[in-house]
């Protein structure tokens, strides 16, 4: 079985490898659709302290020097840890469908 075949069609158990193998890594495997609530930042409150970035269990927050945190909603699972840990209450969890 080659890497190409791993992507092939699965009809019978014989088509499967010995154990589940994925050739895509988790950055291209977008699981963000699982969430119910998403983080929304109020830039006027944020002091760019990096705390949300450190705590995010899904590595879904990126921060560059002197920039506000960016949320990768393709991977954010909506756990709300960033909002809970933010010392300035700059992050609000908002029901996904509710925000344009």
């Amino acid at each position: 079985m080659t890497k190409e075949e791993l992507k092939g069609v699965y009809k019978t158990y014989q088509d499967l490898p010995l154990t589940p193998i994925t050739s895509v890594n988790s950055s291209s495997n977008r699981t963000g659709f699982w969430k119910t609530n998403k983080p929304v930042l109020d830039e006027s409150k944020c002091i760019k302290c990096n705390i949300c970035w450190k705590f995010c269990p899904d590595v879904a927050i990126s921060m560059n020097d002197d920039e506000f945190p960016k949320f990768d909603l393709g991977h954010c699972k909506g756990c709300g840890i960033c909002a809970h840990e933010c010392p300035k209450d700059a992050i609000t969890m908002v029901m996904e469908g509710d925000v344009a």
Partner: peptide
């Protein structure tokens, strides 16, 4: 083995499967 944990050619092993595959893997 044909597929290995290898930083140069990364694969993920033992991932979640749906019920249409689980029993097949156990059968194997």
């Amino acid at each position: 083995p044909r597929f290995k944990l290898d930083v140069d050619e990364p694969y993920g092993f033992g991932s979640l499967v749906m019920p249409d595959m689980y029993m097949e893997f156990r059968y194997k």
